[in-house]
Design a protein around this nucleic acid. Structure first.
Lengths: 347, 347
DNA sequence: GCTCCTTCCTGAAACGTTCAATTGCAGCAT
DNA sequence: ATGCTGCAATTGAACGTTTCAGGAAGGAGC
């Protein structure tokens, strides 16, 4: 290995070094960095050349120590493996980028402990604010953060009458849309395949389904609810087997699943057991993940404006950061039904 | 709203404030934080109580300014929407967590400009090191980072004889595994459905496929190569149509796809056109994404140890950070074939 | 020649930590 | 008494930046 040239000396260059090589004072260098219009073009250029020569990189720690604020936001996401949250993240990033801030993504992986560690660390970093999809919306650590001055915005979760903004999607409406669509298609026996009732989303979507059913004047007992342990592909398959096990006159002609993973599992089980979709069973999913359109039979699904969710959350956060008159807001987006072959195809 | 209590005063508490309320000097507070064993239990407890009372949160900017190093790593990922990279990220996070560091995830979204902005910002943050799956492995900004002292480890990309570590998977071997599996199953006309040749992975997997084919003594013209514009589901469907268009005696009985998205598209097209898998066409994918197992016909695929990739990358980075005798290493992992119904089922 | 502006630059004081050097103080041996 | 030893706590100087009160130089107006 060749000996590194002068540029690669031990410590990295500071404003002081730049000032020395440019033959100006340290304050001038800072001005070039922060208020270039105050520096004469000649000196400015000299300073800039010195920076380039020394490979100067501004030390963000010192900067934010001095100014008392950082240039960054964070999104603490529930599950980085779930496309829903990565799309939300993309929306946040877009908003952060156009505000000139950088975004730290943290993944709690649905574990309270990791979430807590991330929050503590972000607080120490003095990030401007935090967007979060929390493991538990009622976690007292969230209140503690707010009390100590870090603005928070919650995405896809809410807490009644709370001291922060939140952005969510109307899941009751989503459930209605799905079931109204099935009723319109002529189905009179439908299954709601839900996940564990402990998840608010699962409850709300089921509630919407029941509302639509009742409003159509259909008998409640013809809307069967199947609860799964987890909203996964494997559970969707199991649900399929349970449906087949029902006596023919009670067996539903359509199923509305609380998310696309369940729907895909159900779809797979139905097809591989030799029945057809939608002929023997029409299926509606929820989330409209990328693979929904790519399934063996393209899946009808309820789409949420994921990226908008993120963007709006970031905007609310930024508003709270720099508008002293900010008022907390609970934004609710509207979902949309995307009809595809799994409910539309030839019977 | 109630008036916030004393704790919520304007500025957040500093070590100085803690020292004052605990009635000790500022250095003692720092000792409680960093070398608690040097402080007598009585004082320590007094200081800790003061911290709790004031809601003291250590200012990480000041800390890292003083110590000259941060407690964080970063992973600049190519595409946060691709499960492959989120699994890599999970591996990195595991390693970072057990080293007591926190991880910043940045998404370049395959855009050079975003990647550059992230790298610049991370350099300003003085992160300990950066794991990256770059848009372009030869980007000079990467060399510049290394020159200026930020260690880099590359994941899933490499550069010949370079000045940093890298971690990748043997894609040539992966291609061999896939095609050997098909040959073993009796296939004598096979298609390799690749993406654009500009992607190194696509080339390597194809190369492995050809090697296996040649070693089995099969005629080269019976291994057809289909190039797609992009490795997506839609392109996989198109590839399916092109296969059907071939004259029967040239039509392959099996296809090896450069990734699972292509394979899923091909699978979908095959089934919806009334043919069967693997009866009319056996299919092997690559990546073993979660949906591979959940497809209409569960997909045989080549699995990469994604999480291990990330973990190892982080370990190499950490080694470089704190071992002065560190030597750069190019780690290559071994892929593994996961056989499922798309090549195994009853014909 | 004098004052009064501008423009461009300087110098020093913060910001909140850490850490090495230092003081104070008790206990113990001389 | 006097000097050691060792522990506990204190002191003060950094770290690299921003900011702000000015100072020097030069020009305009009288």
């Amino acid at each position: 290995m060749a000996i590194t040239p002068a540029a690669g000396s031990s410590r990295s260059a500071s404003v002081k070094d730049v000032a020395a090589t440019a033959g100006v004072s340290l304050g001038t260098v800072s001005n070039v960095l922060n208020r270039p219009e105050r520096v004469s073009p000649a000196t400015r250029e000299r300073v800039e050349r010195a920076m380039a020569e020394l490979g100067f990189v501004r030390n963000e720690s010192a900067r934010s120590l001095r100014t008392g604020s950082t240039q960054s936001l964070a999104y603490v996401m529930l599950d980085a493996g779930n496309p829903f949250f990565t799309d939300v993240a993309r929306g946040i990033e877009l908003a952060a980028e156009s505000a000139g801030l950088s975004l730290f993504l943290c993944n709690s992986d649905s574990r309270s402990a990791r979430e807590g560690a991330h929050l503590a660390h972000l607080q120490q970093q003095r990030v401007q604010g935090i967007v979060i999809t929390p493991v538990d919306p009622d976690d007292p650590q969230i209140d503690q953060l707010i009390e100590r001055g870090t603005p928070i915005v919650m995405v896809d979760r809410t807490r009644a009458g709370s001291s922060f903004c939140s952005v969510a999607v109307d899941d009751v409406l989503g459930g209605r849309l799905a079931v109204e669509h099935l009723i319109d298609a002529g189905h009179r026996r439908v299954a709601y395949v839900g996940g564990p009732e402990s998840i608010g989303q699962v409850r709300d979507r089921g509630e919407g389904a029941r509302q639509a059913w009742a409003e159509a004047g259909l008998p409640p007992e013809d809307l069967i609810t199947l609860s799964c342990e987890a909203p996964t592909v494997a559970c969707g398959r199991t649900a399929g087997e349970r449906l087949v096990g029902l006596p023919a006159r009670r067996r539903p002609t359509a199923a509305f699943c609380a998310n696309d993973l369940l729907a895909l599992g159900l779809l797979q089980q139905t097809i591989s057991s030799g029945r057809t979709v939608p002929g023997d069973l029409a299926i509606v999913g929820y989330d409209d993940i990328e693979f929904a359109a790519a399934a063996a039979v393209p899946l009808t699904s309820v789409r949420q404006p994921r990226q908008d969710l993120g963007r709006r959350a970031a905007e609310l956060l930024l508003d709270e950061v720099d508008d002293p008159a900010h008022e907390h807001e609970q934004v609710v987006f509207t979902p949309e039904l995307v009809a595809r072959a799994s409910t539309l195809g030839r019977p």
